[in-house]
Design a protein around this nucleic acid. Structure first.
Lengths: 119, 119
DNA sequence: CGGCATCCTAGTAGATACTG
DNA sequence: CAGTATCTACTAGGATGCCG
């Protein structure tokens, strides 16, 4: 018998879900991971694909994902410079979760206007 | 052939993952959903289980989850009052995602200290 | 017991201009 | 091309105190 019933949270990050969302959450991390699941992309390519995201925010977010081990950064020592971002093994392992969340949103959020729900 | 390659994000909430995280994310929603997946709980019970969470924040968070259709609120007209929270059908449908995220964090975050990773 | 109102704080997102 | 620096703005989270 597990004693699940006695769990207590004395801080938020004791929750395993919260720990995961800290890594993949935030305003812009999901779209970036979601895009990189389809293959590597260059900095400018990401910028053009997410025009709503300020450059500063993009580079900051990429650095966070890199330091969390989710993405890999490969800089080519050329002129002009070229930098390619791709998912690490750890990032790849998020594929199933991301896919399920995408399906869940399509089923439960996007359809909301159509399904007012039980009254 | 789908033209996935032409996706563009002109705002963050066009991303289906972001949409889902908006609902289940934030600092305290995950532990609450995670707890309610094991069964209904009373307000005070939640409070005792997550003592780090201020009462105000708890009630605000519960209201958000309720208005998003994730949880159900049942108030018993007694003295003293009793209010029970449980997951809705929609909330229940998050079980697989939550479970996967929990497993992912155990495999990729909690073990981090033990696995420095490739050097 | 189970809340809500008010006010405050701090972390993140964002705009613009400049650099290797 | 691929960033960084600086400054501003917003919003989620938090502490305290009162009410049905």
């Amino acid at each position: 018998m597990e004693e699940k019933k006695n769990v207590k949270y004395h801080s938020a990050d004791e929750c395993p879900i919260t720990a995961t969302i800290d890594v993949i959450g935030g305003k812009w991390k999901p779209p970036i991971i979601w895009l990189l699941l389809r293959g590597p992309m260059r900095f400018g390519e990401l910028h053009k694909t997410i025009p709503a995201m300020a450059l500063k925010v993009l580079s900051r977010t990429l650095k966070e994902l890199e330091s969390d081990g989710i993405i890999l950064r490969k800089a080519y020592p050329e002129i002009p410079p070229r930098v390619e971002y791709s998912l690490s093994q750890k990032g790849e392992s998020l594929r199933q979760i991301m896919t399920l969340m995408s399906e869940w949103s399509r089923a439960n959020i996007m359809d909301e206007a159509l399904n007012p729900g039980p009254l």
